[in-house]
């Protein structure tokens, strides 16, 4: 069953603009205040999802599916980024026994 269009039943596009901007800001604040590298990668995923949410909202708002295709490609890039980032994390942990990002600016070579 296809639901009635949400934007025709009173919800404005401004609601989703504000929601995804707040999610993006939470992700940005998380990147700035946390020092654990895994949490940093998770906050990046959160920011990517905020953008995805806004793309889907506009795709529904204008009745075009192109925005949802872009969400696909963002998911592809996010999966690739997560695997490479986590393998860098595992390699770094093996060498310096910590996931604190502030240690990394002392690394030479």
């Amino acid at each position: 069953m296809v639901l009635a269009s949400i934007f025709e039943s009173g919800v404005s596009i401004q609601f989703y603009i504000v929601l995804s901007t707040i999610l993006f800001a939470i992700g940005a604040i998380g990147v700035l205040i946390r020092r654990n590298m895994i949490i940093l990668l998770m906050c990046i995923e959160l920011m990517l999802n905020a953008v995805n949410l806004l793309l889907v909202a506009f795709s529904t708002y204008f009745g075009k599916a192109d925005g949802q295709i872009f969400v696909f490609f963002i998911m592809v890039v996010a999966a690739a980024e997560a695997t490479v980032g986590l393998s860098i994390l595992v390699m770094a942990y093996r060498n310096i026994r910590t996931t604190d990002v502030s240690i990394f600016n002392k690394q030479k070579g």
Binding site: S5, I17, V18, A25, S59, T60, Y61, F62, K64
Partner: peptide, 30 residues
């Protein structure tokens, strides 16, 4: 982060002046 949030919301809030476009066959684009 708060400044970023304020600027983004202020920039985007009144930017959409076009109304919602309903599809011909009723929301099957997803």
């Amino acid at each position: 982060g708060g400044v970023l949030l304020t600027v983004l919301i202020a920039a985007l809030k009144d930017g959409i002046t076009v109304g919602a476009t309903s599809t011909v066959d009723g929301s099957s684009e997803g």
